[in-house]
Computed example of a mutant assay.
Amino acid sequence: MKRYLLAAAIVAGLFSAPAASADVVGFTSPSGNIGCILAEDLVRCDIATRDWTPPPRPADCPDFTDYGQGISLGPYGPAGFVCAGDTALGSGPALEYGQFQAGGGMSCNSEPSGMRCSNSDGHGFTLSQQAYTLF
């Protein structure tokens, strides 16, 4: 199964599990345009309004799901675009500029330029209304 489909399954499972059974932290950019979740094995950030276009939808991302609304990252390996029918928007309180959330070998920094998330092997992404980067 592709990672973005696996990520969607993990997120769906985390949100349906009782709060005591999963250590999931939700947070939002101060503007409210980006919502993120951070779990033991995944960080995912979705964006409400963007001025850019994601790459083309992969053939194995079903038409009945959304694509390109967010980016996910595991503790190792590269980030990728989300193919899912749910959202991380509105997942928690504002993470003020200059603050961060970390766990599971991943961290996200809230910056005036957008959200920047990375993992323990140096991969990650930036996400803002103006642009995204995968690194």
Results as ranks from 00 to 15, higher is better:
29 S>E: 05
29 S>A: 15
30 P>V: 01
30 P>T: 01
30 P>K: 02
32 G>C: 03
32 G>Y: 01
33 N>K: 01
35 G>Q: 03
35 G>D: 08
37 I>G: 05
38 L>I: 05
38 L>R: 09
38 L>F: 14
39 A>N: 07
39 A>S: 15
39 A>F: 04
40 E>L: 08
41 D>S: 15
41 D>P: 08
42 L>C: 07
43 V>T: 11
44 R>G: 03
45 C>N: 09
45 C>G: 08
45 C>H: 06
46 D>C: 01
47 I>C: 02
48 A>G: 13
48 A>V: 07
48 A>S: 14
48 A>K: 10
49 T>I: 12
49 T>D: 15
49 T>P: 00
49 T>F: 12
52 W>L: 05
55 P>N: 12
55 P>D: 08
55 P>K: 00
55 P>Y: 08
57 R>I: 01
58 P>E: 02
58 P>I: 01
58 P>M: 02
59 A>R: 14
59 A>F: 12
60 D>F: 03
62 P>H: 06
63 D>G: 12
64 F>E: 14
64 F>P: 00
64 F>C: 07
64 F>G: 00
64 F>K: 11
65 T>S: 11
65 T>I: 01
65 T>W: 06
66 D>P: 01
66 D>A: 13
67 Y>N: 07
67 Y>A: 06
69 Q>H: 14
69 Q>N: 15
69 Q>T: 08
70 G>W: 00
71 I>H: 05
71 I>R: 02
72 S>P: 07
73 L>H: 04
74 G>P: 00
74 G>F: 13
75 P>T: 12
75 P>N: 10
75 P>Y: 13
76 Y>P: 01
76 Y>Q: 14
77 G>D: 04
78 P>H: 08
78 P>D: 13
79 A>G: 04
80 G>V: 07
80 G>N: 03
81 F>G: 12
81 F>D: 05
81 F>R: 04
81 F>H: 10
82 V>L: 15
82 V>T: 13
83 C>M: 05
84 A>I: 06
84 A>W: 15
84 A>F: 09
84 A>C: 13
85 G>S: 14
85 G>F: 10
85 G>I: 03
86 D>T: 13
87 T>Q: 07
87 T>E: 11
88 A>S: 15
88 A>D: 08
89 L>K: 02
